[in-house]
Design a protein around this nucleic acid. Sequence first.
DNA 1: TTGTAGGCGTTATCAT
DNA 2: ATGATAACGCCTACAA
Lengths: 349, 349
Amino acid sequence: MAQNTASDKKPTINDVARLANVSKKTVSRVLNKSPLTTEVTRARVEKVIDELGFVPNPQARALALRRNFFIVLFHDNPNAQTVLNFQKGVLDRIKTSDLALVVRPVDRHSPDMLDDIAHFLDQQRPLAALVLPPISEDDRIAELLRAKNVEYARIGSAQLDDLPHSVFSNDREAVKAACSELIRAGHKAIALIKGPAGFRSAAEREQGFREAMAAAGLPVEEHFVVEGTYRLNSGYVAAQKLLAGDNPPTAIFASNDEMAAGALHAARERGINVPEDLSLVGFDDSPTASHLWPPLSTVRWPIMEMGRMAAQKVAQRYLPDGTDTDLDDAQLSSEFISRKSIAPPRHLQ
Amino acid sequence: MAQNTASDKKPTINDVARLANVSKKTVSRVLNKSPLTTEVTRARVEKVIDELGFVPNPQARALALRRNFFIVLFHDNPNAQTVLNFQKGVLDRIKTSDLALVVRPVDRHSPDMLDDIAHFLDQQRPLAALVLPPISEDDRIAELLRAKNVEYARIGSAQLDDLPHSVFSNDREAVKAACSELIRAGHKAIALIKGPAGFRSAAEREQGFREAMAAAGLPVEEHFVVEGTYRLNSGYVAAQKLLAGDNPPTAIFASNDEMAAGALHAARERGINVPEDLSLVGFDDSPTASHLWPPLSTVRWPIMEMGRMAAQKVAQRYLPDGTDTDLDDAQLSSEFISRKSIAPPRHLQ
DNA sequence: TTGTAGGCGTTATCAT
DNA sequence: ATGATAACGCCTACAA
């Protein structure tokens, strides 16, 4: 790319216009792919653009269009790995463009959350917004985005909006598959450590568990269903409770890896070996899952792919390398990952 | 804050000027805290600003000032938790301002890295840049930032630049303290799994290890020093090697938690119990550290605080709530965290 | 199909 | 200390 050297002045649309012998507006038309230009002039203008290494100034465009050329990511810190992988996916998709990604954590427990978001949107006027769970489940945010006329996509464990505004995984199916694996190994007394009430992901994963049990004709013992908070300690506490009874479960599905790690600690403390005495499955495929001993069987959430798809969805027209993805695609598959934390129950070993 | 309702038109500097009976420029002066205004006019203007709920339009400012009101974070994905915690610290500090944080991962192995950064800076003209390790150690990036006249701060395990452009921790001291803890417990045969050559953090941590040994008058057996890559598996391999000998170490300091997790697996595979037969210390205080069994003693890297301080450093004048931090402060302390992975060596138990 | 004039909302220059 | 006028670099309306 030709670059100006010493002067350090970047060429403007005026320079291009002058050298191409056309008006600013014509250059503008070329830049914005307006159909109202002759092939000839377009070619001439593009040649000059290339020679100059001209790149439109985003600030000026922002002012004129009243729209900033970036995508915001709103989230209320689910786990770090999730946020970062998602960011990575988004950035991966937009890196060849001139878009930027700005991060905006919010506090879903603050009464000011909506006002904060509104203020941010008014101030910064982003091109588009991406919303990660759990706040993606908040319909008020989507309404706000629509009202402010900001393109958006909601990410979730299940479809949260119409297709053009959704990117989601099939947690339910994935959990069903994972639990079916447990059942196939011979387990019947399977416990569930579920996520906190009110989280869509928690509900979906619970459903998947129940469907797997039902499909196998196994009853769900309700005292084998314990609620956690998605934090390590809640998994520990839940497992203590589950393992304390006379007929403890031979397998546990924990709705995320962190709780599974907690459950693992609880088992170890009671001298219960995993997987010999207790099989364990988590969800997320966090780094922790593979760092544990035994390495944890889990479900990989396609979060990076979701980031890529979300970026594609909301910013397609600003991304150079076309429409390889069908816009109606919105669902990506979670995938069961088998590691060493599953074994047949004792009596079958 | 007074908000216009139906019209949805946000007030501009012109509205303020008209209602306050002054010129745009005067309003601008008030906004920018220019000393060239009477107390009286300033008060009058500020009153109108409040009543209108006027907020300057960042896009227009950006165009006029040729500078975008955001901070970029450049990084080449160290671990997710680090990046995210740093982001959190930065955002925490700037959240009451009108600044935004944009994330820009780069690939330090790409020959285009510098060009990419340069292009980004030219295009986006950020107010300031923050650079996370390991790329913060690359002097060429700092040069670029200076050349492009972008305020910046480099984050590291030791001072990487002059004080105004540095935020760093004292890895060496912290590791020294951690290893001294091992020595105090009675260990003499202590091994080091160090980080990859060329990383400043690796060098600092190694130094800390050596200083602790020297201070205790203990020799460093060079076959007890093995290099890893900061990844789990390299810790596993290193520990296999360390534990295979006739006189294996009774304690290992791994230069990060991930490698410590790998070492833990290796030990477990050989039937070596942690901490009874082998004490283990990591570095980072990652979530993994507390999820392992036994919970890993480690060093907490004050990464969030570093984010806060870095934001303060580069954007002080744009942040509303003043100068509570001394700008010359650049160092933050890492802290040893004692958990269950340390015990006296066998013969002292 | 192309160009002219004017606007987006702010800051800078240079008088007064 | 304040204000008129001109940038900043792009885009939209409207005219040609």
